[in-house]
């Protein structure tokens, strides 16, 4: 009896939770889509590896509401990003700006790749040179080497 009551209570919770989400998306699905897209570019500072779109932290909810309000007031995406940066700093942008202090961050992987290519090229060239310097075999030695490699010649082995 008591358990059933609790289960019934749990089911009562579900529509309430949904009502909360619905309230934010109710009037304008297009605006909501823009708000969520923009929120995907903003970092939740409480849960730092999430965007505010993904986060349900209280601050993230507040900031999402700010984004919605400002879009509704007709502000552009860039204006809203600037507003956030002015208050929370550039760290609030989920992808860092491309500027001199972030060049290493943005182009570092490419730099590593180029260095890797260079090291590979140097190594390959060295190896080719070693191959060219390798002693040449006469016909007889060649035949013996081939036989050894194919495992046919066992002479000399214990």
């Amino acid at each position: 009896m008591n358990n059933k009551f609790i289960v019934a209570l749990l089911f009562l919770w579900i529509p309430l939770a949904q009502a909360d989400v619905a309230a934010t998306t109710r009037d304008d699905p297009a605006l909501e889509k823009r708000a969520m897209a923009l929120s995907g570019h903003l970092r939740c500072l409480v849960c730092q590896n999430q965007t505010i779109a993904d986060s349900n932290a209280e601050l993230a909810v507040d900031l999402k509401n700010q984004v919605r309000d400002k879009l509704r007031q007709g502000q552009s995406e860039q204006e809203i990003l600037d507003y956030m940066v002015n208050r929370y700093g550039e760290f609030v942008l989920f992808s860092p700006l491309v500027k001199s202090t972030t060049w290493l961050l943005w182009f570092g992987p490419l730099l590593l790749f180029v260095v890797g290519l260079y090291v590979l090229a140097v190594n390959l060239r060295q190896r080719r040179r070693l191959m060219q310097q390798a002693p040449t075999l006469n016909k007889e030695e060649h035949a013996r080497a081939a036989a050894l490699l194919s495992g046919k010649e066992t002479k000399g082995h214990p």
Binding site: V46, L59, D62, L63, Q66, R87, Y88, G89
Partner: peptide, 12 residues
């Protein structure tokens, strides 16, 4: 409402 908080960049 925490609106002044947002203006001040409060995140905790």
């Amino acid at each position: 409402e925490g609106s002044a908080g947002i203006d001040w960049g409060v995140y905790g």
